Amino acid sequence: EVTIKANLIFANGSTQTAEFKGTFEKATSEAYAYADTLKKDNGEYTVDVADKGYTLNIKFAG
């Protein structure tokens, strides 16, 4: 089991951190699915992958 950390960075400057656990593939998939649910209210997003994929910096356009 691994932990994927998602740093969520919103257009208004606020930030939030979420963690997803499971296999690497499952946790990564859940992180992207979570970002997709936030897209409606926060706009499109870009992802900067860090720490060999264990950290995702997800920035929303607003």
Rank of each mutant, 00 (worst) to 15 (best):
3 T>C: 05
35 A>H: 01
58 I>H: 01
26 K>P: 02
25 E>H: 12
14 S>M: 12
54 Y>D: 04
31 A>G: 04
36 D>F: 05
62 G>Q: 11
61 A>W: 05
24 F>I: 13
4 I>Y: 01
21 K>M: 14
42 N>R: 14
45 Y>M: 04
58 I>Y: 09
1 E>S: 12
39 K>H: 07
56 L>K: 01
59 K>W: 10
40 K>Q: 11
18 A>H: 14
8 L>K: 00
57 N>Y: 12
31 A>M: 08
44 E>L: 14
9 I>Q: 11
39 K>S: 05
38 L>S: 02
43 G>L: 04
60 F>T: 00
12 N>Y: 15
17 T>N: 12
26 K>L: 09
61 A>L: 11
48 D>H: 15
54 Y>C: 03
53 G>C: 03
43 G>T: 02
26 K>Y: 10
43 G>Q: 03
5 K>Q: 09
44 E>Y: 08
20 F>E: 00
11 A>V: 15
19 E>S: 13
37 T>M: 12
48 D>M: 09
36 D>V: 14
23 T>G: 08
52 K>R: 07
2 V>I: 11
17 T>K: 11
17 T>M: 12
51 D>W: 02
44 E>N: 09
22 G>S: 09
44 E>D: 13
17 T>L: 15
43 G>W: 06
34 Y>C: 03
58 I>M: 09
54 Y>V: 14
19 E>G: 04
58 I>S: 00
38 L>K: 08
7 N>Q: 08
31 A>D: 00
7 N>S: 06
41 D>S: 08
40 K>N: 10
41 D>G: 10
18 A>L: 15
10 F>I: 04
48 D>W: 08
50 A>K: 09
41 D>Y: 12
55 T>P: 01
24 F>N: 07
50 A>C: 04
33 A>K: 12
6 A>F: 03
59 K>S: 08
41 D>K: 15
17 T>F: 07
60 F>G: 00
46 T>H: 06
2 V>F: 06
6 A>Q: 03
35 A>V: 14
33 A>Y: 13
41 D>P: 04
28 T>R: 09
51 D>A: 07
53 G>A: 04
24 F>H: 11
18 A>G: 10
27 A>L: 01
52 K>H: 09
62 G>P: 12
29 S>L: 15
52 K>I: 12
51 D>T: 03
15 T>S: 09
29 S>G: 11
6 A>K: 00
13 G>W: 06
53 G>Q: 04
32 Y>C: 03
32 Y>P: 00
58 I>K: 00
52 K>C: 04
34 Y>A: 08
9 I>C: 04
14 S>V: 07
12 N>K: 08
20 F>I: 03
36 D>R: 04
23 T>D: 15
36 D>T: 10
53 G>Y: 02
57 N>I: 14
20 F>L: 02
10 F>T: 03
3 T>D: 04
40 K>S: 09
45 Y>K: 01
18 A>V: 08
44 E>W: 11
38 L>W: 08
2 V>D: 13
57 N>R: 10
54 Y>I: 10
17 T>S: 05
62 G>I: 04
24 F>P: 05
46 T>K: 06
9 I>T: 07
14 S>C: 05
28 T>S: 12
36 D>Q: 07
44 E>T: 07
60 F>W: 11
24 F>R: 06
28 T>Q: 14
13 G>I: 13
14 S>H: 11
27 A>Y: 00
40 K>T: 13
25 E>I: 10
34 Y>K: 04
60 F>V: 01
44 E>H: 14
12 N>L: 05
2 V>C: 04
7 N>I: 04
4 I>W: 02
47 V>F: 14
56 L>A: 01
51 D>Q: 06
17 T>Q: 15
62 G>K: 05
9 I>A: 10
46 T>L: 10
1 E>G: 15
22 G>P: 01
16 Q>I: 15
31 A>F: 03
17 T>E: 10
34 Y>E: 02
57 N>D: 05
1 E>W: 08
53 G>E: 04
26 K>T: 08
45 Y>L: 02
6 A>C: 03
37 T>H: 07
18 A>W: 09
10 F>R: 03
28 T>D: 01
33 A>C: 03
27 A>M: 03
18 A>C: 03
57 N>V: 14
27 A>S: 05
14 S>D: 15
58 I>E: 00
38 L>G: 02
15 T>D: 12
9 I>P: 00
5 K>N: 09
17 T>P: 10
51 D>F: 03
29 S>M: 15
35 A>G: 02
33 A>D: 08
49 V>P: 09
23 T>M: 14
53 G>W: 03
20 F>P: 00
43 G>I: 02
29 S>W: 13
26 K>I: 15
52 K>Q: 09
18 A>I: 09
62 G>A: 13
32 Y>S: 03
46 T>N: 09
48 D>G: 10
4 I>R: 01
15 T>L: 15
21 K>R: 11
57 N>S: 13
17 T>R: 09
9 I>S: 08
13 G>D: 07
6 A>T: 15
2 V>K: 05
35 A>F: 15
45 Y>W: 13
43 G>M: 13
7 N>F: 14
35 A>W: 02
48 D>V: 14
60 F>H: 01
11 A>T: 06
19 E>C: 04
1 E>F: 09
28 T>M: 12
61 A>T: 13
8 L>I: 15
11 A>W: 05
24 F>L: 11
4 I>V: 08
46 T>M: 15
8 L>P: 00
60 F>Q: 01
5 K>R: 06
61 A>R: 10
25 E>Q: 14
38 L>I: 04
17 T>V: 10
47 V>S: 05
33 A>S: 13
1 E>I: 11
50 A>S: 11
23 T>H: 10
50 A>E: 15
33 A>R: 09
35 A>S: 12
41 D>L: 15
52 K>F: 15
12 N>H: 03
27 A>G: 05
40 K>Y: 09
29 S>D: 12
24 F>Y: 10
4 I>M: 06
59 K>N: 06
54 Y>P: 01
3 T>A: 10
56 L>V: 07
46 T>D: 15
34 Y>I: 05
19 E>R: 06
35 A>I: 14
59 K>G: 09
17 T>A: 08
39 K>I: 13
58 I>T: 01
59 K>T: 14
16 Q>D: 06
53 G>L: 03
40 K>F: 10
42 N>L: 06
3 T>V: 12
36 D>P: 01
13 G>K: 12
6 A>P: 00
43 G>C: 02
18 A>P: 04
57 N>G: 08
19 E>T: 11
31 A>V: 10
50 A>Y: 05
40 K>A: 06
35 A>K: 00
56 L>D: 00
46 T>F: 13
59 K>Y: 07
46 T>W: 06
11 A>L: 11
28 T>P: 02
42 N>H: 15
23 T>S: 15
8 L>T: 03
59 K>L: 14
18 A>E: 08
4 I>Q: 00
58 I>F: 11
55 T>G: 03
47 V>M: 10
55 T>L: 15
8 L>E: 00
59 K>C: 03
61 A>F: 13
53 G>K: 04
4 I>A: 01
34 Y>W: 15
3 T>K: 07
16 Q>N: 10
10 F>S: 04
44 E>F: 10
26 K>F: 14
47 V>Y: 11
11 A>G: 06
30 E>F: 08
31 A>P: 01
29 S>P: 02
54 Y>K: 11
62 G>Y: 08
50 A>R: 14
26 K>H: 11
14 S>P: 07
57 N>T: 07
28 T>V: 14
30 E>V: 08
4 I>T: 01
48 D>R: 09
8 L>G: 01
45 Y>G: 01
38 L>A: 06
61 A>H: 12
27 A>P: 01
3 T>F: 13
60 F>L: 01
54 Y>S: 07
13 G>L: 08
45 Y>A: 02
49 V>F: 13
9 I>M: 08
48 D>L: 07
2 V>L: 09
49 V>W: 05
57 N>L: 04
59 K>D: 05
48 D>Q: 07
42 N>C: 03
34 Y>S: 02
49 V>K: 13
59 K>R: 13
62 G>N: 09
34 Y>M: 11
26 K>A: 15
28 T>A: 06
35 A>C: 04
5 K>M: 11
6 A>G: 12
3 T>E: 15
5 K>T: 07
58 I>P: 00
19 E>M: 08
4 I>H: 00
1 E>K: 04
40 K>C: 03
30 E>C: 03
6 A>R: 00
9 I>G: 08
40 K>W: 05
38 L>F: 15
26 K>R: 09
5 K>D: 03
43 G>Y: 03
22 G>E: 04
55 T>Q: 05
9 I>D: 05
34 Y>F: 08
26 K>E: 12
25 E>D: 15
39 K>D: 02
28 T>N: 06
7 N>C: 04
2 V>T: 12
60 F>M: 01
52 K>S: 10
40 K>H: 10
32 Y>Q: 11
34 Y>P: 00
